[in-house]
Computed example of a mutant assay.
Amino acid sequence: MQHSLTQGPITKNILLFALPLGVTGIWLSVPIGWALADAIGIGYYLKKRR
Rank of each mutant, 00 (worst) to 15 (best):
G33Q: 02
L36G: 14
Y45D: 06
W27Y: 07
I32T: 13
S29R: 03
Q2R: 11
G33V: 03
Y44Q: 12
W27E: 09
L15D: 09
K48E: 15
L5Y: 13
L36Y: 12
R50F: 10
S29A: 15
V30F: 11
N13G: 14
A35E: 08
H3R: 12
K47C: 04
V23D: 08
S4V: 02
G25Q: 08
I14G: 05
W27Q: 09
Y45T: 13
Y45G: 10
L19E: 11
G25V: 04
N13W: 12
F17E: 00
L15N: 06
T24C: 03
P31H: 13
A18E: 03
Y44D: 05
N13E: 07
P20R: 03
S4N: 08
L46T: 04
I42A: 13
H3V: 14
L46C: 03
L19I: 05
K12L: 07
P9N: 07
G41W: 08
L21K: 02
N13Y: 07
T11H: 03
Q7I: 11
S29C: 15
V23G: 05
W34C: 08
W34T: 06
L5M: 14
G43P: 01
A18R: 00
L16S: 13
G25K: 08
G8R: 01
S4K: 09
V23A: 14
